[in-house]
Amino acid sequence: MIAIVFSLYFILSCLIFAKFNNQAQIRGFFCNFKRMRRMLLLTLLWAISARAAAQKIPVNKYGLPVLTTRQQYDQLVKADSNQQLVNLEHYIPGIQKDVRYATTNNFTKQQLYTRTDIYLRLPAAKALKAVQTALRKKGYGLLIYDAYRPYHVTEAMFKIVPNDLYAADPRKGSGHNRGVAIDLSMVDLKTNKPVAMPTDFDDFTRKAHQNYMPSDPVIAANRKILRDAMFQHGFKGSSTEWWHFYLPDYKKYPLMDIFF
């Protein structure tokens, strides 16, 4: 990048000499240009150092890079604004939540979160906002069960259910730990109640699979409406969990073990 800047500088110098025949004009121009060049170089050096700092992510016992401090996260966001986590309740009008892991009403029977805030990386939040807009036109809204999940919570879950069909293997990490996976359902805007789905959230039976065919056509239709809306806006789905969706480029986003 710096080489490109100096090449442009050389070309511009040639053009200036060709244009100006007055030495005072040339000296005045280059005095200002040197100041601009100095500022540009300082900006480039700052950007390079910020990106380098963001890439120095410590690895855990499995050899996975995992962000563990707000300072590391802030450096990452400075280098790439798409890495920022967005509070979905602030970003998406009308979104609803039922954060099960902040209660004991989940498959672990333990309270795993102390807060009910829901976050996603900016690109995932933008895509989900588009989903919400599309669903509202059909009389539905989004109901969020889980979004960004700190890495140590994934470790705790896998100890209870050591099956990566249903709980992410901490040796690989989860899309939730990267802030680009979401567990969700829908509410009927007329009643403000959750719509009927094949199972409850975190059901580990075959009925939760995407290829399961419910006998009730209304339930099948509800699942299809949600799935189609998510797919149309860039998400992929889990084959074993009708509620789970994620961005396909999840590897661009580091694993994190930070509460917000």
Rank of each mutant, 00 (worst) to 15 (best):
I2K: 11
A3S: 15
I4K: 11
I4R: 12
S7C: 14
F10M: 11
L12I: 15
S13V: 12
C14N: 15
I16D: 05
F17M: 08
A18L: 15
A18R: 13
K19H: 14
K19V: 12
K19N: 12
F20R: 08
N22D: 15
N22V: 09
A24D: 14
G28I: 07
F30Q: 08
C31W: 15
R37Q: 13
L40K: 06
L40H: 13
A47Q: 14
A47G: 12
A52N: 12
A53I: 10
Q55Y: 09
V59L: 10
V59N: 04
V66C: 05
T69A: 08
Q72W: 02
Q75C: 04
A79M: 07
L85W: 03
L88Y: 07
E89N: 11
E89S: 05
H90D: 10
H90S: 11
P93C: 07
Q96D: 10
K97I: 09
V99Q: 02
V99D: 04
T104I: 15
T104K: 14
T108V: 07
Q110M: 13
Q110D: 08
T114D: 15
T114P: 00
R115E: 15
D117L: 09
I118F: 12
Y119S: 09
L120Q: 00
R121D: 03
L122Q: 14
A124S: 11
A124F: 06
A124P: 04
A125M: 09
A125Y: 06
K129W: 08
K129C: 14
A130I: 14
V131K: 05
Q132R: 11
R136E: 15
L143Y: 01
I144M: 08
Y145C: 04
A147V: 08
Y148Q: 08
Y148I: 09
Y151V: 05
H152G: 07
E155I: 11
E155G: 03
A156Y: 06
A156R: 06
M157P: 06
K159F: 10
N163I: 12
L165A: 15
Y166Q: 06
A168W: 01
P170T: 07
R171A: 15
H176W: 08
I182L: 13
V187S: 01
P194K: 03
V195H: 00
V195M: 04
V195K: 01
A196R: 07
M197D: 00
T199E: 01
T199S: 01
D200C: 05
D203E: 06
T205K: 00
K207V: 02
A208E: 02
H209V: 02
Q210C: 06
Y212F: 08
Y212V: 03
Y212I: 02
M213K: 10
P214H: 01
D216A: 01
A221L: 04
R223N: 03
I225Y: 06
I225K: 03
L226D: 00
L226T: 00
F235Y: 02
S239P: 07
S239L: 11
E241H: 11
W242N: 00
W243Y: 14
W243M: 13
H244C: 02
Y246K: 01
P248I: 06
Y253G: 00
F259A: 12
F259L: 15
